[in-house]
């Protein structure tokens, strides 16, 4: 279960949204209209178990998300979920990786301080001795043109989902 976001962590004025999560109680998230640029030359890496619980993350992940490593390890990956992302994007992710396939996509992520950052993400199943053990995601710096396209598409999809 993911604790609600804490107003004390948030910088600037924010908007509050209650975010429904799959298989978890809804989470109160606090949104600030500020983008943090993806750092040049870095890869943001995380590994999850089969349910999407984080088992490893690198220092770029810690820095960009704003959460300490101790909070991230053992947390559901939806700790980064931003309400501007349509549910269908993540359904596609899970359908693909559970079928043993690689998934790519542009993702808007929510930071602990309420700001957001865009990434281009790839998720692959980790196969060990013929069995899927978990999933690895590597994010890289996206092209701005692609981010603009994705933002438009996601807004349409969200409207279709009856989103906020």
């Amino acid at each position: 279960m993911l604790p609600d976001m804490n107003p004390a962590d948030v910088i600037g004025s924010y908007r509050e949204v209650v975010l429904p999560l799959y298989g978890l109680p809804p989470r109160r998230v606090l949104l600030v209209d500020r983008e943090v640029a993806y750092p040049d030359g870095r890869l943001i890496v995380s590994v999850t178990d089969l349910r999407g619980v984080i088992t490893h993350c690198n220092s770029a992940f810690v820095e960009m998300s704003g959460y300490p490593q101790e909070t991230l390890i053992g947390a559901e990956h939806s700790i980064l979920r931003h309400p501007d992302m349509p549910a269908i994007a993540f359904k596609g992710l899970w359908d693909d990786v559970q079928a043993g396939k690689i998934w790519h996509g542009y993702v808007k992520n929510l930071r602990r301080d309420g700001a957001f950052y865009w990434v281009y993400a790839t998720v692959i199943p980790n196969v060990r001795a013929g069995k899927v053990q978990g999933y690895t995601s590597v994010r890289r710096k996206p092209a701005r043109l692609k981010v603009a396209e994705a933002a438009r598409l996601y807004a349409q999809l969200l409207a279709g989902e009856g989103g906020k």
């Binding site: 690689i102 980790n126 060990r128 590597v138 890289r140």
Partner: peptide, 10 residues
């Protein structure tokens, strides 16, 4: 194996 998974995502 972890390094290879990363390489594969790239």
């Amino acid at each position: 194996e972890f390094m290879i998974d990363l390489m594969d995502t790239l």
